[in-house]
Amino acid sequence: MTLLDVENVHTYYGESHILEGVSLSVAASEVIALIGRNGVGKTTTLRTILQLTPPREGSVTFRGEDLQGLATNEVARRGIGWIPEERRIYSQLSVAENVRIAVPSDRDADAALKNAYETFPDLERFGDRDAGTLSGGQQQMLALARGLAGENDLLLVDEPSEGLAPRIVAAVADALAAAAEETTLLLVEQNLPLALDLADRFYLLDNGQVIDSGDTDEVRAEDERLRRHLSA
C-alpha cells in the first residue's frame, strides 16, 4: 500500500527552480534511499514533503490525503517525522527535554524517554545536560531518538552519517536498521554503501529530477550506473 506519493513537484527558492518535476512513492514499512550529488535537491524534496518549502506545482499525498495548503505542524501531526541535516537538536535544552518535546502529550513523555534510553543507552548518562555539550556522535543519536520518539508512520532522515567517525556511523546504521523494523524510512544519504545496505529501493536525483530508480539489490555502490551521477 502506498504511504507517500510525490507527484511531479516543482519547488522554488525565490526564483531559483530547485525541483523540476520530482516523482516518487513510498510504501508502508519500506526503506527508500534518496541519493545524488550535493545540491541536486534531496534536502529540498524532504522540505517539500513537509510543506516547509511548499511546491508550486505537483502534489504530495500522504495516506491518500493531499498535503497541499497544510502547515508544517499539521503535516507532522499526520505522522511524518523529520531528522534534519546537521541534526538541529536544541542545544540549550537538556537531552531529556529534546526527547520530550517530540512527544505530543506529557503523559506519554516518560515512556518515550525510557524507550529512547533503551535504544541509546549512552544518552541516559547525559539526561540533564544541555544537549549542546554533547559530542557530534551523541548529538546524532539524540536527533535519532527525538525523531523516533514521535512514533511517526514515516520518518524523513537527512544525512544521518554526515561528519561522523566510522565507529559512530556503524552505530547510527544499527539504530536506523532497528527503526526500519517499526516504521517507514525515506533516507537521504551520501554514504552509498550504507544507503544501499539499509534501503529496499533507491531514487537517484540529478539537477532536480529523478533520473534513475530501482531495487537496491540490482545495483552495487561501484556500479557505473550510479557512479556517473555521484562522483563530483
Binding site: 516547509l52 502547515a71 505542524n73 536544541y90 520530550r100 518535546i101
Partner: peptide, 17 residues
C-alpha cells in the same frame, strides 16, 4: 518547554507537530 524550543529553532519545532 515549547517556548524555549521555539526560541532556539522555530522551524524544527513546527516540524515536530
Amino acid at each position: 518547554l515549547i517556548v524555549r524550543a521555539g526560541s532556539e529553532d522555530a522551524e524544527m519545532t513546527e516540524a515536530l507537530g
